[in-house]
C-alpha cells in the first residue's frame, strides 16, 4: 500500500475508535451503547492488526467484542425486564432506583478526571523514547530454547509463565466468586445461558458455526507454537461456540457441583502448576520445562489450558445458577430494540 494511504487508514481507525468510545459512553439507550461497544471492539481488532499484534487482535475479538458483548446484551435485557416489572408493581420503586444513579457532579468529576488522564497520557506517549526500548529481540533470540516458534507463546508459556499461570487461577477464582452470588437454594444447580429471543436464526447459526469454530480452535491451538494463536484465543472461540449452542436452547450445562465440571475447570492450572513444580526437580527451576521435553510439556499444558479457559469463560458468561422457576418466568419480555 502507499504509505500515505496507510496513514490515512490508521488515522481513520483512530478517529472512529475515539468516536465510538464517546458514543457508547454518552448515548442514552442501552442497546445502542452496547452495539457501539461491540463495534468498538471489532475496530480495536483492526487497530491491533495494524500494530502487528494478531494474537491480541484475536483475543480482543473473542473476549472484548464477542463474550463481553453477549454478556452486556443479556444484562441489558434483564435490566429492561426488571424495570418493566417494577413499573407494574408501582411508581414508588423507580423513584428509589433513580436516586441511586450517580449524581451529575460526580459524573462531571469523572469526565474531567478521564480527560486529564487522557491528556497526560497523550503528552507522555509523545515524550517516550523513539524507537521504543523492546525486549522483542531478546525474546526471539532465546525462543529456540523452548522449541517453539511463536514469540508471543514463548513469552506467555515460557519467559513469563508465572504471570500466565496466575492469570488462569484468577479466572477460576473469578468463577468461584460468580457462583458465590447464587441464592443459597440454587448454588449447586446448573447455570444456564439466557435463551435468545430470536430463536430461529440463532438455531441455524448454532448448528452451522460450531463445526467450523471447533476446527478453527484446534488449528489455532496447534499452530500456536509457530504462528499467532495459542491456548487463550482457542479457548475463547470454543467458549463462544458453546454460548451459541446454549443460547439456541440446544444444550444444557451440568450443575456446578458436578465433579467432571470442576475437574475441567481446574485441570489446566493444576497441571501447569504441577509441571512447573516438577521443574524444580528435573529442570533448572520452578516453571522450567525438562530438557528434551519442552515441546511436549508445553503442548500438554496448552491443550489442558484451552479446555479450562473455554469452560471457565463459558461459565462466566452463564453466570450464577438460578432458581429453576426464573428460567421460564418473565425474564426476557421482548427483543431489546
Amino acid at each position: 500500500m502507499i504509505p500515505a494511504l496507510e496513514r490515512a487508514v490508521e488515522l481513520a481507525i483512530g478517529a472512529m475508535l475515539v468516536g465510538l468510545a464517546l458514543w457508547s459512553v454518552l448515548v442514552r439507550p442501552r442497546f445502542a451503547s452496547i452495539v457501539g461497544f461491540v463495534v468498538f471492539g471489532l475496530l480495536l481488532m483492526l487497530a491491533w492488526m495494524r500494530l502487528g499484534a494478531p494474537d491480541v487482535a484475536m483475543t480482543e475479538g473473542a473476549i472484548g467484542s464477542g463474550l463481553a458483548g453477549f454478556l452486556l446484551l443479556s444484562a441489558a435485557a434483564r435490566l429492561r425486564c426488571s424495570e418493566i416489572r417494577r413499573a407494574r408493581i408501582g411508581a414508588g420503586e423507580p423513584q428509589r432506583a433513580r436516586d441511586r444513579s450517580p449524581r451529575r457532579s460526580s459524573i462531571v468529576a469523572l469526565g474531567v478526571g478521564c480527560a486529564a488522564v487522557a491528556a497526560a497520557l497523550a503528552a507522555a506517549v509523545a515524550a517516550l523514547p523513539h524507537p521504543a526500548p523492546s525486549l522483542a529481540p531478546a525474546a526471539l533470540e532465546r525462543l529456540p530454547e523452548l522449541g517453539i516458534g511463536n514469540p508471543v507463546s514463548g513469552v506467555l508459556i515460557g519467559f513469563r509463565a508465572l504471570d500466565t499461570l496466575v492469570e488462569k487461577i484468577v479466572l477460576v477464582v473469578a468463577l468461584v466468586g460468580v457462583w458465590g452470588l447464587a441464592a443459597e437454594a440454587s448454588w449447586r444447580r446448573a447455570p444456564s445461558v439466557d435463551p435468545s429471543p430470536e430463536i430461529e436464526p440463532i438455531r441455524f447459526l448454532a448448528r452451522a458455526l460450531p463445526p467450523v469454530g471447533i476446527v478453527l480452535a484446534i488449528y489455532l491451538l496447534w499452530r500456536g507454537a509457530t504462528e499467532p494463536g495459542g491456548a487463550f484465543p482457542a479457548g475463547a472461540i470454543l467458549a463462544a461456540m458453546a454460548v451459541l449452542v446454549l443460547a439456541a436452547g440446544l444444550g444444557r450445562l451440568p450443575p456446578t457441583a458436578a465433579r467432571s465440571l470442576r475437574l475441567a475447570i481446574c485441570a489446566g492450572p493444576l497441571v501447569f502448576l504441577g509441571v512447573g513444580g516438577l521443574g524444580m526437580g528435573v529442570a533448572r527451576g520452578f516453571l522450567d520445562y525438562p530438557a528434551g521435553f519442552e515441546v511436549l510439556s508445553i503442548k500438554l499444558i496448552e491443550v489442558l489450558l484451552t479446555g479450562s479457559v473455554a469452560v471457565v469463560l463459558l461459565l462466566l458468561v452463564a453466570g450464577p445458577p438460578e432458581e429453576a422457576a426464573s428460567a421460564n418466568g418473565m425474564r426476557r419480555p421482548e427483543p431489546p430494540l
Binding site: A190, R252, A257
Partner: peptide, 14 residues
C-alpha cells in the same frame, strides 16, 4: 419438581 438441574447432578456427586 422439574428443574433441569437434577438431570446430571445425581451421578456426579451433587
Amino acid at each position: 419438581s422439574g428443574g433441569p438441574a437434577e438431570a446430571g447432578g445425581e451421578a456426579d456427586g451433587g
